[in-house]
Design a binder for these strands. Sequence first.
DNA 1: TCGCAGATTTAGGCACGCGTAATTCCGGGA
DNA 2: TCCCGGAATTACGCGTGCCTAAATCTGCGA
Lengths: 233, 233
Amino acid sequence: MSAEANASGYSRSTEDYLKVIYELEGRGAPVQTRAIAEALEIAAPSVSGMVKRLSESGLVEHVPYRGVRLTGSGRRAALKMVRRHRIVETYLTQKLGYDWDSVHDEAERLEHAVSDELIGRMAMALGNPRYDPHGAPIPTKDGQIEEQELLPLSEVPVGSMAELRLVSDRDPELLRYIASLGLKVGVAFEVIGRQPFKGPVTIRLPGKPPRDENLGHELAAALQCWEREGEVG
Amino acid sequence: MSAEANASGYSRSTEDYLKVIYELEGRGAPVQTRAIAEALEIAAPSVSGMVKRLSESGLVEHVPYRGVRLTGSGRRAALKMVRRHRIVETYLTQKLGYDWDSVHDEAERLEHAVSDELIGRMAMALGNPRYDPHGAPIPTKDGQIEEQELLPLSEVPVGSMAELRLVSDRDPELLRYIASLGLKVGVAFEVIGRQPFKGPVTIRLPGKPPRDENLGHELAAALQCWEREGEVG
DNA sequence: TCGCAGATTTAGGCACGCGTAATTCCGGGA
DNA sequence: TCCCGGAATTACGCGTGCCTAAATCTGCGA
Ligand SMILES: [Mn+2]
Ligand SMILES: [Mn+2]
Ligand SMILES: [Mn+2]
Ligand SMILES: [Mn+2]
């Protein structure tokens, strides 16, 4: 048989922990045990145990009762996983006809099995894409990742034009729903209203005739947009 | 995160054991512990332990000190893995430019991560191929597999035409070497000589002018061929 | 400043897969 | 039939990663 367990040398669990910690770290704040536990759907004491191993491996720095932060090598490994995940999602969508709501689960498994070689070939076949199907930036081979300045649709000022740039890939139903509205990454629309107290946001989608849609606050908050101030079509 | 560990529901180890047992079973003879241990590069007592678990799961039947045989569900699961492995190898070769000597290791990992859905899409994109890049038949979705009647080149009678049909995918160096000779699955040639006492086999490859090559006995034994009796070109 | 709620860790346990060392079994030759 | 070498199993141990229950810590509000 041969072939290593896991192209990267780390276990699947380790890889998933690093990725989740990276995503929860955001702007460098220490990540709480409980947040990791929730994201991975694992009991908190299991996380404590794993965190100890990760910190003994030098992948995270752990301040007891405070939280963890990725070390340099932890961050590198995490970015590698993020790249794998996003390239796989892009490949499945572009080359194998997957819809954007069904690639995440597949990628969650494949990211641990693909080699650098395969990721390189997929990226090549795709023309080295910069974003995955949900708009998330794909880290380069050497770990550079673009920082995006985005605004949740729920905070885009009424009256301005916005363009959908990024949606979480975690909720297939949400993805299916917004796709059914004709919304996908890159689509521009006008924000024509927003009700107070977490009320719905109304947007006007391009088309003949233009179509208005009301989006609940929670949904609107999940849609990260570029705002194009003043540019009302 | 979500997403099962392993699309099939069995662990990676379990899947590899089943596949190896299937391959060692050949014509239904019980498979010895030692053979499994060697194929998986694992110590024999580890195999004893795993065999016990496999037999408790109803995947193999174990007669102590004698060997194991796959049960119905064990065979079904094994054939599923064989299908996955071979479709992945074919896909990597056809769609991502891999050489036939480098797909095996990649497939050995990916086979555990791909879903039925993905295998279906890969097979579709390939036009439901019947053989993998090494000539091995690909089981159908419902577990049918073609039985081939092949003869090792070392046993093909001198003077007859033969066509290379199947090579083991385990030895990349062997694969590279025979490819360098211009041999690949489907190539026909004439067997023009064979020395006794495990001596070399001489074949005449088509071309202008035809080219003769001497293949060591061990190599010739690894090349499974169709014999086309009497048809000397 | 105290105490409580919630977060975290510790304690103890389990299944999985692997290993080495020791023991047992099995089949064939004398 | 006995013995012996090789095959297989048993005994024991380890790291990983998960769990629940019990202790412990931390920060905040009264
Ligand atoms: Mn994803
Ligand atoms: Mn994953
Ligand atoms: Mn193979
Ligand atoms: Mn495998």
